[in-house]
Amino acid sequence: MSSEPQIIVGNEFTQVIVKKVYTRNGERLEITSPKLHHSIQLDPLALESLTWQEPEVFTEFLSKPFGK
């Protein structure tokens, strides 16, 4: 278990836990959804690529949860 601090972000619909983790390939940001038991580790380039997106991209993600 990492000793890195966690950040918990939530609202009335969901909650996520964000923390920095160390892997063989460097630092990653791990985002976990305790409710859904899903998590993802994103490297710095993947995180930066989020800043290149227009807000509408995220709206589209949310219109089809889980790729359905």
Rank of each mutant, 00 (worst) to 15 (best):
Q41F: 02
S3L: 14
R28A: 03
K68P: 04
Q41L: 07
E56M: 12
K19M: 04
Y22K: 09
K19Y: 01
E56H: 09
R24E: 11
L29K: 00
L47G: 01
T59D: 15
N11D: 15
I31A: 02
R24T: 03
G10R: 09
A46R: 06
L29M: 13
E60Q: 13
S2P: 04
S2R: 06
K20V: 14
Q6R: 14
A46T: 07
L47N: 03
K64C: 05
R24V: 01
R28Y: 08
S39C: 09
P65K: 04
Q53G: 04
A46C: 08
R28D: 01
T23N: 06
L62K: 11
L47A: 03
Q6D: 11
I7K: 11
T51W: 07
H38N: 10
I8L: 03
L45F: 07
Y22Q: 15
Q6M: 08
E56K: 11
L62G: 13
P34N: 06
V16N: 00
L29F: 05
I7R: 12
W52K: 14
T59M: 08
R28N: 05
F61S: 03
E54K: 15
D43H: 04
K68V: 09
H38G: 01
I7W: 03
I7Y: 02
F13C: 08
Y22W: 13
M1L: 12
H37C: 09
V57H: 13
E56S: 09
L36S: 08
V57P: 00
K35A: 08
T23K: 15
D43K: 01
L62A: 11
E4F: 12
E12P: 01
L29Y: 02
T32A: 09
H37R: 15
K35S: 08
K19S: 08
K64A: 07
L45Q: 13
W52Y: 15
